[in-house]
């Protein structure tokens, strides 16, 4: 269930971060994201956005990834 205080990783401004609550959307994409380390209870942070706003550079577990907005939108996080 999506709780009202959960927002998508793709909605964060550059520099903002949060904690992964859950992943939703396409099952294959979900597993991919999990394999890259976007697991529940993990801290994530948007480092910056590319020109045109997409993709996002996201930090998780000490690594940084280039993540397209669609993929980032399936990562639900708790802000702060």
């Amino acid at each position: 269930m999506i709780k009202p205080y959960d927002i998508a990783l793709s909605d964060l401004a550059a520099g903002a971060g949060g904690t992964v609550v859950t992943l939703e959307g396409d099952p294959e994409l979900r597993v991919r994201l999990l394999e890259f380390g976007f697991c529940p209870e993990t801290r994530v942070r948007v480092v910056r956005r590319a020109p045109f706003g997409c993709p996002l550079e996201v930090e998780v577990g000490g690594s940084r990834f280039s993540l397209r907005a669609e993929a980032a939108s399936s990562v639900r996080i708790r802000h702060g």
């Binding site: 994409l29 991919r32 940084r64 990834f65 280039s66 993540l67 993929a71």
Partner: peptide, 10 residues
Amino acid sequence: GLQSGILEMA
């Protein structure tokens, strides 16, 4: 085949 387009930026 779905492509995630996720790249590590080392």
